[in-house]
Simulated assay, not measured.
Amino acid sequence: MRLAETVTFGGSGLDRAAHLRGDKTEMARRLATGRVLPLWRGKPLLADAGTLGWLEAGHPALAHGRAPVFLGCDAGQDCFAQDISDWTPEAGAEAVEHGFFDASEQRHPALPATWVFAELRGVMAALTPRAAELAATARAILHWHRSHGFCATCGAASDMAMAGWQRSCPACGAQHFPRTDPVVIMLVTHGNRVLLGRSGGWPEGMYSCLAGFVEPGETIEAAVRREVLEEAGVRIGPVRYLASQPWPFPASLMIGCAAEALSTDITLDPAELEDALWLGREEVLQSFNGEHPQIRPARKGSIAHFLLWNWLADRLD
């Protein structure tokens, strides 16, 4: 797919400068002259809806921060991310990471009143490709450190290493690296119709492409066929890759595929989906335009939205 890398979080070409990660002296020097993006419980700091809020190292807002992680180099600037989740805002903390989407915003007293910590999914489509990649990388790697503080081999507390791209166990010497979970997401079509589903807990009327995790020992194509059959009872024939999207909620790589359905009868697995249906192009276009009486589209910025929009525009080549 020629437009594959125009998906949100993809294609900015960030120089991650991995060769510098093992040089602690160089990292310290670059941190002193670089910039830091703070995240609070997975929410990046925003100077406005389309601009990340970068700070200098040592800024008072970073006082509760953990060790910074090196993200890479952007136009000559060294970029770092820092988790300040130990800071407790005066209000708004209780809503974080609960429900489908956290619309609350948090403000730090050491920052301008217009600067906020906000849910990345709510602003991702407004960010530039480079800002989106930096924010997604920061969210994913900092979440990994928050959830993998102990050695999976012996259980001892592990230490951050390689500028944040590794954790090392001082007890047994094991080395641990950030994980990314592969997820297939399918644009399933039959003629001029597309198969969409919805999970319980989603906003009313929202439908999206079917998706599921790739299992050990499974190819992408096999995962597509298995997931669609399990969730909707629809058998799949040819499968082809379209595009991928890093999805740091918390640590997935969405692998977008086109899949041709061999059957259209839906047998729903209620443990997986609340509903599934076939929609024609006109109905999908209506939902995108906010004109469908029942169906709402996938969130703008998601790969599901990207695939469906390009399917409508006949740009899946």
Rank of each mutant, 00 (worst) to 15 (best):
A47W: 02
D83Y: 12
A136H: 07
S104I: 04
G13C: 03
T33N: 09
L111Y: 12
P112R: 13
A47V: 10
T128W: 01
L62C: 06
L71S: 08
Q106M: 11
L45R: 01
W87I: 09
D78Q: 10
L120Q: 11
H64G: 03
A18K: 06
F80I: 09
P60Y: 13
L31H: 02
G72T: 00
E97F: 09
V36W: 05
I84G: 04
E26Q: 07
F80R: 07
L37G: 03
H64M: 05
T137I: 02
V123T: 03
A136C: 14
G53Y: 03
L52C: 10
D23V: 01
A125P: 00
A63H: 05
L37F: 07
G10D: 15
E56A: 15
L20K: 02
H59A: 11
A113K: 14
A131M: 04
M124F: 03
L134Y: 04
W54S: 09
F101H: 11
L14G: 13
F117K: 07
A131Y: 02
E90D: 13
G50M: 01
D86Y: 04
A95N: 08
L127D: 02
A113L: 12
A28W: 01
V116C: 03
E97D: 13
P68T: 12
H59N: 05
V116Q: 02
V36P: 08
G10P: 13
W54L: 12
A132D: 13
H98F: 05
S104V: 06
M27N: 05
L120F: 14
A113W: 08
